[in-house]
Each structure stands twice: as C-alpha cells, then as structure tokens.
Design a protein around this nucleic acid. Structure first.
Lengths: 234, 234
DNA sequence: ACCTGAACACCGTTCAAGT
DNA sequence: ACCTGAACACCGTTCAAGT
C-alpha cells in the first residue's frame, strides 16, 4: 500500500533478543511499565507482532531480561578494588544498585517480585564474597547476605516506587513532595504517637542516607553475632 | 431472556466496598493475581460491570484495599502483651506478617510495590513502638524501623513469590522444589564459589528460620550502634 | 529460519439507559 | 442513588501465509 508510512530507515540488522530488550528498556525508561506493550515494541522495532515471539517466550520474559541487564550492569560497574575493605565495597555496591534502580524504576518492583531469577545469584555471590572477607563464617553467610540484599533492594525499590507514584499522579503531587517527615507530622498523633514524634527528628529524609545507615546497622549486627571482632575484643 | 442462568440466590445485600474487597480476596486466594478481573468480580457479585465503579476508583484500588486488609488483620491479631519484651513482640510481629503473606501471596508483591499506602504507617508505628521500648533513641527510630520492616516484608515477599512461581509453572517444578541450598549446589563453582560453598552448610532452607535469624541480626546491630546496652556494658 | 499481520480471546473503563 | 450491559479502545498470543 502506498499510503503505508515508515518512520525512519528500514531496520537492517536482524532481530535479536538483545535488540528487543534494548528497545524495551527505552520504552520503559521513557514512559514507565505500562508503556511496554507488544504493539509499542513491534512499532519501535519496525516489525510485526509475531516476529518478537521468535526470540522471546512472552512479554514477561522481555521485562525480566531488561531487569536482569540493569542489575547485572550495576554489579559489573561497581568498583571492587581489593585494596578497599569489604565495608567500603559493600557501601559502593549498595549505592550502585540503588542508583541503577533509581535510573530504571520499573526494575525495582521486578527484582523484588522475581527472587528466583539467576541474576539474584550474582548479587548474592558478590555480597557473599565481601561478607566472607568481613569474617562471616560460611554457615551464616546466607542469613547475613539475605538481610543485606533485602535491605538494599527494599530501600531501592521503595525509592523507585515513590518516584513512579509521584510521576504518575497529577493531583496529590504536593503531598508526595512533602517528604516522609512532613507526611508523618500530619498523621493523627493519638493513633501514631511514635511516627508523629519521630517526624520532629527527621528534618529531611534522604533515601541514600537511609540506605547507608541501614548497611552500617546490619554490618554491626553481623559483627556482633557472627564475627565478634569489634575493637573491644581485639 | 429465559435461558439466562443465575447461579445461587439473587444478592440481597447492597453492594459495598467491603463486599467487593471480600469477593476480590476470594478470587485472589483461589486462583492468584491474574484471576482478579472486573468480569470475574462482577460475576461473583451477581452484578453488572459498571456497578463496581460506584464503590471503588478502579481495579488497582480493589487490589490495594484487599492488601491493606490482609496486613491490617495481621497487625491486629499479633499478640503484643506488655509483659513480653520488645524482642518477643517483634518476633511475633514478624511471624504474623510472614504467615499473613504466606496465606495471601498476592499481597506480598503488592505491599512491597506500594510503600506510600497508609497501612505502612501502621506497620511502622507498631514496630517503632517496640523499638522505643527496646531503647532506640528517637532520632534513630526511622532508620532502625526501616531496616526491620524491609527485612520482614522482603523475606515474606520472597517466600510468597517462590510459592506463586511453583504453583504457576508445571515444567521446572522439580527444580523449584529442590530448595535453595540444592539450587545453589548446581551453580557453576567457578563463577559462584561462595554460593556453591554455602550450599554445603544450608542442608534445608526454611524461610521462617531465615526470617527470625535476620530479626536477631538486626536487633543485635541496633543494640550495638544505637543502644549499647548489651550485657557486657551493664 | 525468519518475518508478517489478520484473527482470536481477552481486558478495564465509560456511559446512556433503566429502576 | 444505585445498577445495568452494550460499546469502546485497548491488550497478549497464535498461526496460516509469505520471503
């Protein structure tokens, strides 16, 4: 049909899973999780609907693969110089994962929702290696690593979910931008005495500070019950 | 039309948000998150599609309200006798939330994905109250509570997601039922030396044990850096 | 082997019309 | 005020037909 419009040049490279995941990541970054549809994807790739099914199992496969790449890239790019101590590396790792999920908020919900994905093993291996260097005995490695990984992904996912919620809703935007402390201050003091009081002390809430404070807390706990090599005992 | 089939008696009670949420919970429990559709919901309630919109904003509102109720019920039913110490109450609270999400796996992903929901304030208030009793100064309450809540919801969500994945896929079911330790054992030892080694020590993985071990670890960390009232210093 | 696009079986949401 | 159900604009997935 002569009226058929083709935007941009005809795709020359063959369709691959990598190119599909790349296009999906662009859609997700630009307009969020709801923007990743088969039709938007095939339009962006200048191909038919069914062609994509030659390279991926289904749409959830595409989303999972895109998430894997975000996490794997963050792990790869985190500096893990042997000269740094495990505490320094773990802090860098936490910030690296946080920033990656901050940049790709859709990956936050995904990585929490699919704990059986192989990329989780990469996270655990990296964290486990550092905790081994930190002095955690092998029989406690999985418990210690689990707490640390859940904390990092939890704070990162929370930050990402809040960012997405702010971007989504027009009304109520002000309430969101108030910050956690101010929101707590508006809670009924009779029902939420603790949060109401805590709001006084949290002048401004920073998710990255919360992330690092939690890492310190967890390392202190690991040290106390699994290592016992604090300065008092040296 | 005379051929119109009505299963069961005609609904006598008026449609309310509570009855909608109750029906939604039944659908979700019976067949998972994908089973909650507007059509299934209106069929179960013997009403038309549009009627539901008189009582809820949209379908995500229904899912969120159902999740709120699961969490709120778990909080309400957790025994918080003043005679028990905060450590005991926090363990009970962790197990209560874990069991609630275990019974309603669809709520696991939901509660992690929507951190701005008011029911989160109830969790934080309850945990914060116990941590105050534990001796955490107010300026550190939000950091300490955040780590604990992320841990509980993280382990609970992980357990629920695995259970859902097992229920979903027919093939590969064996691999899932192997347990975490055995799965780790199959990983390439060259790429995952730490996980491979750790698998030897985790004969059988129990998510509830992991949950409680993490609570102990976190309380030890809180004690070490925020309270400093361990037995060595009394 | 790889791709096309019509067809199928869904889905949430809206709204004029009823009671 | 509350409810109905047809209509609308989507969606993922399949598959006979093409190259």
């Amino acid at each position: 049909v002569t009226t058929r419009a083709r935007r941009g040049p005809r795709r020359t490279e063959a369709l691959t899973k990598a190119s599909i995941v790349e296009a999906a990541t662009h859609l997700l970054d630009a307009d969020g999780e709801h923007a990743l549809t088969l039709r938007a994807l095939s339009a962006q790739l200048h191909t038919g609907h069914g062609a994509i099914y030659h390279h991926v199992a289904d749409m959830s496969d595409v989303l999972a693969a895109a998430t894997d790449e975000v996490v794997a890239t963050a792990l790869r790019e985190t500096p893990t110089a042997a000269t740094d101590g495990p505490r320094t590396v773990l802090r860098a790792l936490a910030l690296g994962l946080f920033d990656a999920i901050d940049a790709h908020p859709w990956a936050g919900a995904q990585v929490s929702t699919a704990p059986w994905r192989p990329v989780r093993a990469d996270i655990y291996e990296t964290v486990g290696e550092q905790l081994h260097a930190f002095g955690v005995p092998e029989r406690h490695l999985s418990d210690a690593a689990g707490v640390l990984v859940n904390h990092i992904l939890g704070v990162a996912g929370q930050n990402a979910a809040n960012a997405q919620a702010i971007a989504r809703r027009e009304e109520g935007r002000e309430a969101f931008l108030l910050g956690v402390a101010d929101q707590w201050a508006y809670l009924d003091p009779a029902r939420y005495p603790r949060l109401h009081q805590a709001a006084n002390h949290v002048a401004h809430h920073d998710d990255r500070e919360q992330l690092l404070a939690g890492v310190e807390l967890i390392l202190a706990g690991i040290d106390a019950i699994y290592c016992n090599h604090t300065e008092w005992f040296r």
